[in-house]
């Protein structure tokens, strides 16, 4: 218990990094996931094929590899630099990799949501003269979102937990890194372990409850 109290400030600072990553990646993945699903259902075959290829590759690659690629491949080899400050650069490389990965799950959730929207909705939208993008953004996606709030909540929960592999992109600041670092000096500490578990539960459980509640409240009656 003493170690947990002693290292609490370090651990909390680390956990704050996880929360920062979660917030930024959460927003960006929702945006890019939505764009991606638009591409996946677009009327242009080339776009659709490109979207499908991207989703299948990113989604089926282990996250540690995605992050390692964003750091070792994109940054070190190709020279993608967000900032001269290594820790800031590392942060954005994690954001890049984690967003690229999580967007595909957002996309696939939304796509299953689109499948719950009756075909007649899109036809009626087209029949009053809405363009493809208008039909998608005004009619199809709003209904698709409401149908998949709970699954999207799960995607967000997985993403929050996935911030603990930030270390794979060379970002040495999150709580998992601080924990390992602490263990190197104090030895393995069960209380520290449990403390981190509790911290994640405090964040993740309400998201599960909230999205479950929203899913019921916002369900589209047919």
């Amino acid at each position: 218990m003493d170690e947990l109290i002693e290292y609490a400030p370090d651990l909390l600072a680390g956990f704050a990094e996880n929360l920062k990553l979660s917030a930024v990646c959460g927003v960006l993945s929702l945006i890019f996931g939505t764009i991606l699903v638009g591409i996946r259902v677009s009327p242009t075959p080339v776009l659709r094929a490109a979207g499908t290829a991207y989703v299948n590759i990113a989604r089926n690659t282990p996250l540690t590899l995605v992050l390692a690629f964003s750091s070792l491949g994109l940054s070190d080899q190709i020279g993608l630099i967000f900032s001269d400050e290594p820790s800031t650069n590392g942060f954005w490389l994690v954001v890049l990799g984690l967003t690229a990965y999580t967007s595909t799950f957002v996309c696939e959730s939304l796509r299953s949501g689109i499948n719950t929207v009756p075909f007649g909705q899109a036809e009626a939208a087209r029949a009053i003269g809405l363009t493809f993008l208008q039909s998608l953004s005004l009619i199809i996606l709003p209904q698709a979102f409401r149908a998949v709030i709970a699954p999207l909540g799960n995607v967000m929960i997985a993403m929050i937990k996935n911030t603990t592999v930030a270390i794979a992109a060379g970002y040495l600041a999150d709580v998992a890194f601080v924990m390992k670092d602490t263990f190197d000096t104090t030895g393995v500490s069960i209380p520290i372990f449990l403390g981190i578990v509790v911290a994640f539960m405090v964040v993740v459980l309400p998201i599960g409850f909230l999205t479950g509640w929203l899913a019921k409240r916002l369900a589209v009656a047919r």
């Binding site: 036809e123 029949a127 409401r146």
Partner: peptide, 10 residues
């Protein structure tokens, strides 16, 4: 006007 109305449900 469709047989199944197709009003925007949301």
């Amino acid at each position: 006007v469709f047989q199944s109305f197709n009003l925007f449900a949301h």
